[in-house]
Amino acid sequence: NQASVVANQLIPINTALALVMMRSEVVTPVGIPAEDIPRLVSMQVNRAVPLGTTLMPDMVKGYA
């Protein structure tokens, strides 16, 4: 199964993503693939992302 990017902490709106904020986990539904974690670093989220939430492409500015 494909691992997705999951929030490792609460990520406030407009926060630039850092490695420590993300982990990979096999979840349903599938979100952003875990292999894209390096690409996500320094991109901003466009909403608050609670701990344990799967990151979806529409949550990250400039990802989709």
Rank of each mutant, 00 (worst) to 15 (best):
N1E: 15
N1H: 11
Q2W: 13
A3E: 14
S4C: 04
V5H: 02
V5F: 01
V6F: 00
A7M: 05
N8T: 13
N8S: 13
N8K: 08
Q9K: 13
Q9M: 14
L10S: 14
L10P: 14
L10V: 12
I11S: 00
I11T: 01
P12E: 12
I13C: 15
I13Q: 14
I13K: 11
N14C: 15
N14A: 08
N14G: 10
T15A: 11
T15S: 08
L17R: 00
L17D: 03
L17M: 05
A18G: 15
A18E: 14
A18S: 14
A18N: 11
L19E: 09
V20H: 14
V20D: 13
V20A: 15
V20C: 13
M21R: 00
R23C: 09
S24Q: 13
S24W: 10
S24C: 08
S24T: 12
S24A: 14
S24P: 14
V26W: 10
V26K: 05
V26F: 06
V27A: 06
T28S: 13
T28K: 06
P29C: 05
V30W: 06
V30N: 14
V30K: 06
V30D: 12
V30S: 13
I32N: 01
P33H: 12
P33Y: 12
P33C: 06
A34C: 07
A34P: 07
A34M: 08
A34N: 05
E35R: 05
D36K: 08
D36V: 09
P38G: 13
P38V: 11
R39A: 08
R39N: 09
R39C: 15
L40Q: 00
V41K: 05
V41W: 00
V41E: 05
M43I: 04
M43W: 06
Q44P: 08
V45A: 04
N46C: 07
R47S: 11
R47M: 15
R47Y: 13
A48L: 11
A48H: 13
V49Q: 02
V49L: 06
P50L: 11
P50W: 06
P50A: 14
L51A: 15
L51M: 15
L51P: 15
G52L: 04
T53P: 01
T53D: 14
T54Q: 03
T54N: 02
L55M: 11
L55E: 00
L55F: 09
L55D: 01
M56C: 13
M56F: 09
P57W: 07
D58A: 12
D58R: 06
V60A: 00
K61E: 11
G62N: 11
G62T: 06
G62P: 04
Y63L: 06
A64G: 10
A64P: 15
A64V: 14
